[in-house]
Design a protein around this nucleic acid. Structure first.
Length: 478
RNA sequence: CGGGACGUGGCGCAGCCUGGUAGCGCACAUGCUUGGGGUGCAUGGGGUCGGCGGUUCGAAUCCGCCCGUCCCGACCA
C-alpha cells in the first residue's frame, strides 16, 4: 500500500504536519510545543550550520558560547527589550532544593548576557570590532506552536558585534543581511525579499531591524532571518564603553543577527509537493540514492557494479547512499526516497549491467534517463546542479506570479482575500495605516525594500491616500 | 489566550448515540514467494481506549475536571 499524504492543495497545514512526521524530520515530544529533531532533520540542520558557519567565518567572525541562563536584572536593563520578551520568557526559580535569590531567565536571545561580558572585555578602540557568533538553543514560551516554524525551544545562530562608529554598525548589519540572502538563495534554493522592517515589526531593543522574507507555497510569508542594528541601546544599558582614537569615552555601536531551525520548515513549504519533500542538492543529506534491482543472480551480477558506482560517486564528492536491503522491493524504495526528498535516484538492474548503463531519475521533474556508466559521474554532477537551479527558479517563478501591485485599498483587500502572496504597495509610514491594514486584512508589512527600484509603485498610500510614502511588501505571515 | 474539532496497539480509523469479554487496515515479527513504481500468501506479537475523579452490579461508551494535538483568530524567529 502507498503511504498516502494529504494533498498539499487540499489542506496545507495537514500536509505540512504529515510530511514532517512521515519523512522523520521531527516528532512531537511529551512537552507541549517541544519537538524532537530526528536524525534526518538534524542532518539537514548540520548542513545548514556548516554552510552558514563557513560564511560567518569567512566574513571575519568567530564562534563562542555564552550561558543558557540570564539573571533577571540583566534582562531588565534595556527597557524595550524586557517589555518585548517578557511574555515569552521561561524562568528558573529553584536550583536543587534551594529557592534562588535572583530568578534566572532561560535565554530568549542573548543580547543581555553578552552585553554584560562585552562591557568587561572592551576598553579601547583597539579592541574593536568584536565579531562573535554563537550556535545555541533558545526558549520562547510560545502559545501556538508548529514543528520548525514556531517551537518553544529552537536552535539558531546569533551574531553579536561591536563597532567604533554608527556607520560601521550599519554596514555590518547590511553585510549580514546580504549574506543571509545569498545563503538562502544559493544553498536553500529559496528566493527572498530583503529590506527594512517597520518600527512595529522591529526587534525589541533594536534601533532598526532588517529581514529577509520568503513566500511559502500557500501564499504566506515566512521570515527567514533578521539582522538588527542595535545602535547604542544595549551599550548604554550595559555600559559597554571604549576609549576612541581621540581618547574620548564612547559607547560602542552594536548589531545582532540570527537564523534558526525555522529554515527547515521553509524548505518543506517552499519545495515540497504531494509526494513529499524535494530537497535542494546542496543541503540534502543524501544527494543520490542508488537502488540495485534485485532480480535473479543480482548479488553476483548487479551488486558489484552498484558498489563500484557508489565508490566512484563518493570519490567525486557526491553524498550517495546504496540501498541494498532485500526486505523492500525497488518500487517501495522509489516511493520512500521520493517522500524523503532525495534529489536523484539511480537504478541499476540486470538490463543496465548488460548494457553498461544506469537509469537516473530526478526528484524535482521526475525526468528519467538512461546514462552510460562511463559518464555517470559527470552526468550526476550536472544533474545535481540543474536540480538546485531548477528548484530555485521554480520557487522564484512562484513568488513572481504571486507578487501583485495594489494601487488602492479595494484592490489590496481583494488580493489578500482571494490570492494572498506578496502585495507591493505604497505606505505612508504611518502606524495607523499599518494597524488598520493588519486588522482588516491580516496582512503585515514584511519588508520595506532598500532599493526603491525593486518596488516601482510610486504614488499615494494604499490605505489613506496620502502622498509621499515608501514602497512596501505586505503579506500574511507565519 | 479566545472560538471550533479531535484523542481507541507504531500510524490511520470503526465501536460510543442505545453501558455487558476491544476490532479492522497498514506497519511490525517469522517463513515461503516476489523483486525495473509501495509483491502475494500463511502464521504470530502488541492496546490499563489521553489522565484523574464521579455515576453504575458493570464504563472505550454517560457526567465533571485536567492534559495534549489540530484548525481559525490575538502575540512572536
Amino acid at each position: 500500500m502507498v503511504k498516502q499524504v494529504t494533498a498539499k492543495s487540499e489542506d496545507f497545514s495537514t500536509w505540512y504536519n504529515e510530511i514532517i512526521r512521515k519523512t522523520e524530520l521531527a516528532d512531537y515530544s511529551p512537552m507541549k510545543g517541544m519537538m524532537v529533531i530526528r536524525p534526518h532533520g538534524y542532518a539537514l540542520w548540520e548542513n545548514i550550520q556548516r554552510l552558514l558557519d563557513d560564511r560567518i567565518k569567512a566574513t571575519g567572525h568567530v564562534n563562542a558560547y555564552f550561558p543558557l541562563f540570564i539573571p533577571e536584572s540583566f534582562l531588565q536593563k534595556e527597557a524595550e527589550h524586557v517589555q518585548g520578551f517578557s511574555p515569552e520568557v521561561a524562568w528558573v526559580t529553584i536550583g536543587g532544593k534551594e529557592e534562588l535569590e535572583e530568578k534566572l531567565a532561560v535565554r530568549p536571545t542573548s543580547e543581555a548576557i553578552i552585553g554584560y561580558m562585552y562591557a568587561k572585555w572592551i576598553k579601547s578602540w583597539r579592541d574593536l570590532p568584536v565579531l562573535i557568533n554563537q550556535w545555541a538553543n533558545i526558549v520562547r514560551w510560545e502559545k501556538v506552536t508548529r514543528p520548525f516554524l514556531r517551537t518553544t525551544e529552537f536552535l539558531w545562530q546569533e551574531g553579536h558585534t561591536c563597532h567604533e562608529t554608527a556607520e560601521e554598525g550599519e554596514a555590518e548589519t547590511l553585510k549580514i543581511l546580504s549574506m543571509y540572502k545569498e545563503f538562502c538563495e544559493t544553498e536553500l534554493a529559496i528566493p527572498v525579499l530583503s529590506g527594512r522592517k517597520s518600527l512595529r515589526e522591529k526587534f525589541a531593543g533594536a534601533q532598526m531591524t532588517y529581514a529577509i522574507e520568503a513566500l511559502m507555497s500557500d501564499g504566506k510569508a515566512l521570515q527567514m532571518g533578521t539582522s538588527h542594528n542595535l545602535g547604542q541601546h544595549f551599550s548604554k544599558a550595559f555600559d559597554i564603553k571604549f576609549e576612541d582614537r581621540s581618547q574620548t569615552l564612547q559607547y560602542v555601536w552594536q548589531t545582532s543577527w540570527g537564523m534558526t531551525t525555522r529554515t527547515i520548515g521553509a524548505l518543506v513549504m517552499v519545495h515540497g509537493d504531494d509526494s513529499g519533500l524535494r530537497l535542494p542538492p546542496r543541503i540534502a543529506p543524501v544527494q543520490a540514492v542508488l537502488i540495485p534491482i534485485a532480480l535473479g543472480d543480482w548479488k553476483t551480477s548487479v551488486l558489484p557494479v552498484a558498489r563500484e558506482v557508489e565508490r566512484e560517486l563518493k570519490e567525486r564528492g557526491v553524498r550517495i547512499k546504496l540501498d541494498d536491503r532485500e526486505e523492500y522491493t525497488p518500487g517501495w524504495k522509489f516511493s520512500e526516497y521520493e517522500m524523503r526528498g532525495v534529489p536523484l535516484r539511480i537504478e541499476i538492474g540486470p538490463r543496465d549491467v548488460k548494457a553498461g548503463t544506469a537509469v537516473v531519475v530526478r526528484r524535482d521533474t521526475r525526468a528519467k534517463e538512461s546514462v552510460a556508466l562511463a559518464s555517470l559521474k559527470d552526468r550526476v554532477t550536472v544533474l545535481l546542479d540543474e536540480i538546485q537551479k531548477g528548484l530555485f527558479e521554480q520557487a522564484l517563478r512562484f513568488r513572481e506570479d504571486n507578487t501583485r501591485d495594489a494601487s488602492n485599498y479595494q484592490e489590496f483587500k481583494s488580493i489578500m482575500e482571494n490570492e494572498r502572496g506578496f502585495i507591493r504597495a505604497v505606505w505612508c509610514g504611518n502606524e495607523a495605516c499599518e494597524d488598520k491594514i493588519k486588522e482588516e486584512t491580516q496582512a503585515t508589512i514584511r519588508v520595506l525594500p532598500l532599493e526603491p527600484e525593486s518596488a516601482e509603485t510610486a504614488g499615494v498610500c494604499v490605505c489613506c491616500g496620502e502622498p509621499g510614502g515608501t514602497p512596501a511588501f505586505f503579506a500574511k505571515a507565519y
